[in-house]
Amino acid sequence: MKCGEVEKGLIAFVDERASATERRDVEAHLAGCPACRTRVDQFRGIANLLGEVPAIEPSFGFDARMWQRVAAEPQRASWFAWLVPQARLALSAAMLVALTVWMVKLPANRPQVPVPTPAAVTASSDQDFDAIKDLGVLENYDVLTKFDALSESATAEPQLHDKAQSDEPSSND
């Protein structure tokens, strides 16, 4: 194996954490590579040097400062905290506006009375009137006032038609 192929395993070899295979590969390489033998010796020296740096102790008062910071933490989120995030606030406002707009438009979209069916047309004139008196299209005073005339003309039309038929022979005459 070349130097570059074993270099990844050198630190694990030095700190004796290499796997059996890794160790065998490195040992085989070191047997024929004086440069890497020197490198491994120096790595051991570096590991010893690093061990010379003493540890420090946290300063007096570390724990007290820590607990002060913990005590300053909010223990439980209040209902008001729910409102604080800007995204939630914006979403709530948008929903409120949408609801308001929808409610303002609601009466215009909803039909006030059911649309009369053909069966209703054949009902009595009083029922017809009740059914259609509130319709928007008939909120015309003229139409409403002439409603009786319209219903009469509707019933009179077949008579006129019959009359016209009976008149035809005389005109031909």
Partner: peptide
């Protein structure tokens, strides 16, 4: 492992 190797190579020079 590569990172550690490079670090030890640097330390080998720095602390020679």
């Amino acid at each position: 492992k590569s990172m550690l190797f490079r670090a030890y190579e640097t330390l080998r020079v720095e602390l020679a």
